[in-house]
Nucleic acid binder design. Sequence first.
RNA 1: GGGAGGGUGACUGAGUGGUUGAAAGUGCUGCUCUCGAAAAGCAGUAGACCGGCAACGGUCUCGCGGGUUCGAAUCCCGCCCCUCCCGCCA
Length: 419
Amino acid sequence: MLDIKFIRENPKIVKEEIKKRNMKNDEIVDVIIASDEKKRKLQQEIEELRKQQNDANQAIAKDKDGNLLEKMKDIKSKLSKLDPKLKMLEDEIKKNLFLLPNIAHESVPVGPDESGNVVLKKWGEKPKFDFEPKEHFKIESVKNLIDTERGAKVSGARFWYLKGDLARLEFALMQYAFNFYSDKEFEPMIVPMLVREPAMYGTGFFPAEKNEIYTVNADGDNLYLVGTAEVPLAAYHMNEILNLENGPKKYMGYSSCFRREAGTYGKDTKGILRGHQFNKIEMFIFCDPEESWSLHEDLLKCSEEFLQSLGLHYQVLNMCTGDIGTPNAKKYDIETWMPGQNKYRETHSCSNDTDFQARRLNCKFTDKDGKKKFVHTLNNTGCADLRVLIAILENYQQKNDTVIVPEVLRKWIGKDVIG
RNA sequence: GGGAGGGUGACUGAGUGGUUGAAAGUGCUGCUCUCGAAAAGCAGUAGACCGGCAACGGUCUCGCGGGUUCGAAUCCCGCCCCUCCCGCCA
């Protein structure tokens, strides 16, 4: 959410931002400003009446005065007409504020969609094969370890069972990642995967992405399954004032992630690239705004080092205005090379949401001058199980249809080869 | 599922109709004392919004929404949330 004052003072910037992001609702800025003007006028009118009311009250408290009582009744009836109008205006403004995106950092490339993303760097090289590398779900030794048929029988399309060594490999990977990032001083957390509505609004998933989220027992418990640990991690400090004197709060959260994948029918239907459920380690930072841009670079570096330690070739993208999320001021994606598909695929995503999320979460800190200000928040994929598993399977496959286990994972799975 | 209690400022915690935006304590800031620190003493310290160049002024906020009243943190109604006890379960 943007600051209404900022919008009032910089309507052009906001409108340009909407256009840059290839969104079509820039007229909403004028709507907000008009409502805001009306709201402030009305507010002044009401406040003047309230002042009269308060003054009269104090006088009555000292000595009862019949004339004042009449005046009070008059003020009251006026207020009862104006108050609902003010509330309506406020609600309308708020509703519209939720629709506006964050302001992108100047270093974010302008572009209409994914075609505008800029490759910043590549690390490593594509592995060379003396045979035709297969997609992960076609590798003989892996095939039987993914049971999509029974997954569909039990839970529907885009669900599956991972079995045997593939299940073991996932545990190895996650344990490795968990240790890798906690060594980098992210506090480990096992987080709730069901959250209340305010957590979804606070992080910005509601109202925009409501159709991506599973609702649980809407008539009773009314909880939502998280699509990422970002939600419980961000909401962890909701409505709090943080002490950041000892540096930023850095967390890593492990959770299962649930996504309805509405509108992706027919996309990535083979294999385990896109499912309704997966597991992920996510990192989240609450920090002083002065530090957020350098921390954003640090976060990216963390994920890069992780992939490097697994020996996986990847590229880093600076995501353009048309392809970053509404709350993001800047976002890097890491795409890891998947030789079976002959493509780079997104495995990591690293965002600085500046104060956009903090304003919704109502999360502040006390700055050097003792002022309370909104924090900046950043989030980053530590390790998303399926995507990294796929990368490992496709990059480390052998001609004989076995898969070599990356060296750093061996101590966690206790074997060198799968299949 | 049955029963009970409760939601007050950064935090702990008083306050049951009239200058209570709110006692006290903690924390924080400044000053005094000290070579310095600690301790002690004194003083200051909520947020949001509106108007104003500013000084400053105003309104709102004691979980949320409504009601009673000239006036509500305080009374009434609805909702949300939390805690404890019993039962059930992991």
